[in-house]
Structures are given as structure tokens and as C-alpha cells.
Amino acid sequence: MAKAFSRPKALSTTHTHYCPGCTHGIVHRLVAEAIDDLGIQEKTVGIAPVGCAVLAYNYFDCDFQEAAHGRAPAMATGIKRVRPDLMVFTYQGDGDLASIGMGEIIHAANRGEKFTTIFINNAIYGMTGGQMAPTTMPGQRATTAPLGGTRPRPACPSAWPTCWANWSPRICHPPGRAQTPAGQQGQKKPLSRRFNIKWKTGASVLWKWFPPVPPTGA
């Protein structure tokens, strides 16, 4: 069952700055494929966070804005409200979304804002060098938790979107795993469907990806 595979149109040809094996690149490709599938590149506005993916604006060939740390959902709200015809998505890490920007995402969801959020959860602050995040697991080491995550109650990364979903019935937050082909393939259709849903019903859509399992060597 051989098949062709090529770079999605919405993904620019710029070489990424991400570390070798980091699945930001995979998720970028899946988002770009969803944009291509839906034919919305010409009216999409992406919002880059502060974090490793701040330079995402170099890797997508569509209008982009760059938010202050944690404020992407507020910027997305601003864009979508004044230009409802534009398709808006934010691309945020767990530090950006589940820590400093928690207020913004919850209220955007609560208001049922019509944009999609791609939530990349790697359980630490990557860009600044691996500090602990609210999503860091108990026992997981980080540069600011040298003896392992010190949270009394386990902060289970997958819990966040579940609670946000309870805030507003129109949030759909199917988790995806970027580190296995099955994990990805299973998500590609739904991801464009998510963009689509957002377009038709106006749901706030949250899409969650787990970090890669580090390659176990050749």
C-alpha cells in the first residue's frame, strides 16, 4: 500500500530550530495538513506563544501574530471577535497555557470563543532550559525541581483539558500522541475535523499532544 507523502503547502520550507526528535515539528506538520485539507490557508491567523514554539511563525505560511507569554487565547479572542471570517488558532506549550496563561484559556473556553488551541504538553518549560511546570509529574526532575516534582498532589497533565472541558460543553479535547505513527494517524482526520468543527459550530477546541518517547537508540 505504497503512497506518496509530501510537505503540506501551509508548512514553510524553513528549517526548524527544534532539537532533533522534538515532535513540535510533527505537530506543526499535522496542523499544516489540517489547514491544507480545509483549504483555509488564505484566511488563517496563527498565534505563536512564548516558548520553544515562539518561532512557529517561521514555519507556517499563513498570517501569524506572536503573543506575550500566556496571552495567546486573549489575542485570538481579539482577532476572532473583530474578524469572525478569519480562522484563528493558537499553538501553546504547557508553561504558556497551563501556567501563566491559565486564566486566559479558561475564560476563552468559558466564553466559547471560536478558535482552536493546540496545546503541547511536555511537562516542563522547554525554551528556558527545563524548569518545572504545573504539569511536571511528581518525581519528575526539572532544573527547578532537582529532586523531582515536589507537588503534594499529582498534577496529572491530562487532567487540565478535562477540567477545562467541563467549563464549557463545547470544548472538545481529544488527546493525541505525537510519538507514535498510530497516535498521529489517528489524529490527522480528527484534527482537520476539529478545525472544521470550529468553523461550523464555533466550539473552542483544545488539542493536546504528548511529548515524544525519546528514541531508544538504533
Partner: peptide, 13 residues
Amino acid sequence: VAVGYMIFGAAGA
């Protein structure tokens, strides 16, 4: 804080 960035998003658009 959020309002400041709603303004930024809308102005940027």
C-alpha cells in the same frame, strides 16, 4: 491583562 492582548490581537488584524 487579557483585555490588553485582545486589543493587540484586534489591532494586529
